[in-house]
């Protein structure tokens, strides 16, 4: 074997193989679906999911019921029982940045408008909290 042949067989060929495999695995766009990994940031819009109403057999656009059924803003096209979070008329431009005096006031006002008695009737909330 000449030197050139030796180099081709022992250096270039393995490198070419490695390069092909690396290209297959690392090339972007191959994997469409992004998967949640714990610890990574979550920069999606908040979404509500709510069950289908009992009576309505799911034909036609789902009726908005209660304050969580969002009337109007961009919620009709999503098909299943999926609603983006409600952007109330009293809360301008809240796009993820919650936590602050004014957003507190806005939601408080909306809860009052929705019916203070209903919220009060449900008041001793139960539940649990978990972290991972």
């Amino acid at each position: 074997m000449t030197v050139v042949e030796t180099l081709l067989v022992y250096a270039v060929a393995p490198l070419a193989l490695i390069a092909v495999l690396a290209l297959l695995t690392l090339v972007p766009g191959r994997r469409k679906k992004l998967r949640y990994k714990p610890g990574q940031a979550w920069d999606h819009e908040p979404v509500w999911y709510e069950p289908h109403p009992v009576g309505g057999g799911g034909h036609g656009p789902t009726e908005a019921h209660g304050p969580a059924g969002v009337p109007g803003d961009g919620t009709t096209a999503l098909g299943s029982s999926m609603y983006p979070e409600q952007h109330g008329p009293g809360a301008p431009g809240q796009s993820g940045g919650y936590g602050g005096g004014d957003s507190h006031g806005a939601t408080g006002a909306r809860a009052l408008a929705a019916g203070p008695s209903a919220a009060a009737a449900a008041r001793p909330f139960g539940g649990a909290r978990g972290t991972w």
């Binding site: 999606h44 979404v47 509500w48 709510e50 069950p51 209660g66 936590g99 809860a111 449900a122 909330f125």
Partner: peptide
């Protein structure tokens, strides 16, 4: 009535979740 919220809960997660809950429907 089970509803599911996926998104940011702010610094006070419990308070925020209860706030959301109060807006989550008619049959609280």
């Amino acid at each position: 009535r089970f509803t599911l919220y996926i998104g940011d809960l702010g610094p006070q997660t419990r308070a925020r979740a209860e706030e959301l809950f109060e807006r989550s429907g008619s049959d609280l």
